[in-house]
């Protein structure tokens, strides 16, 4: 018996679920999830996955907490302003659940390091806030064959899809390349309703848990979009594209490139 009585109580609401049980909770304890970005999406995902008892959680970010983050990035508290986001988020994850191993990775992911980082994990949550990194995460996960959850939010809108590389549509099957810089405003330019970060990040956490448990139907081959102003949810069916430049039959992208090379280069 690997769990103490306290741990059985901690995970009791999982264990009593028919679809989870003791075996399922053990799968969660053995799982390794990487969260890219400790911001609006990554923070709620990190807290819920820590609470669920995901045995090893890596969390990557190279930013520090700014007071403007606190309106939605719920792992960071007022006293954390100025602290590294991964340090702040890790402390909250360990406070929720001391059973788990948290790996804070304070770094900027780019073409030359991302594959080595994600390779150690069973599932990746994309909680990034920019298109170049979203494409980088997609391409790297496809190349390393690691399932991941894509997510994005802006204003009142959110979108998410789960990708099983080689088996379901990838982000690049749907969106061929990043939009031109400044074509889409960022959250800092356009604003975002704080609570939708939680709506989307927790969907991503649920997808990670479903994947770990092997239950239900993952959000694959579909893009879930919602508009919180009208509270409309829509699931758009998708298909893998044979001519996808990264997961298609004759991929033209076989090596990673940094769309935001300047930003990445600055850190080295």
């Amino acid at each position: 018996m690997r769990y103490s009585e306290t741990q059985l109580e901690r995970y009791s609401r999982h264990i009593i679920l028919q679809e989870v049980g003791l075996e399922g909770q053990e799968k969660i304890s053995d799982a390794r999830v990487l969260i890219i970005g400790a911001g609006g999406l990554g923070a709620p995902a990190a807290l819920y996955l820590a609470a669920a008892g995901v045995g090893t959680i890596g969390i990557v970010d190279n930013d520090r907490v700014d007071i403007s983050n606190l309106q939605r990035q719920i792992a960071h508290f007022t006293e954390d302003v100025g602290r590294e986001k991964v340090v702040s988020a890790s402390a909250k994850m360990r406070a929720i659940n001391p059973d788990i191993t948290v790996q804070p990775l304070e770094m900027l992911l780019c073409a030359d390091n991302i594959r080595g980082v994600i390779r150690d994990y069973d599932f990746v949550i994309d909680g990034t806030d920019n298109f170049p990194t979203k494409f980088l995460v997609n391409d790297a996960c496809v190349m390393e064959n690691i399932p991941f959850s894509h997510g994005g939010i802006l204003r009142f809108d959110g979108q998410t899809m789960t990708v099983l590389p080689g088996r379901s549509a990838c982000y690049r099957c749907i969106f061929r390349q990043p939009p031109p810089p400044d074509a889409v405003p960022t959250c800092s330019q356009a604003g975002v309703l704080g609570a939708i970060a939680g709506m989307l990040g927790t969907i991503q956490a649920a997808e990670a848990l479903k994947h770990i448990l092997g239950i239900g139907q993952l959000l694959t081959d579909s893009l879930l979009t919602f508009n919180a102003a009208a509270m409309n949810f829509r699931k758009i069916p998708l298909q893998r594209q044979a001519d996808c430049p990264v997961c298609g039959s004759n991929p033209t992208i076989t090596e990673l490139v940094d769309y935001a090379q300047a930003a990445c280069a600055m850190k080295h």
Partner: peptide
Amino acid sequence: CPMNLVYTKVALAA
């Protein structure tokens, strides 16, 4: 409840 169910499931698993 629900810890009695949790312990039942743990015992059944063995």
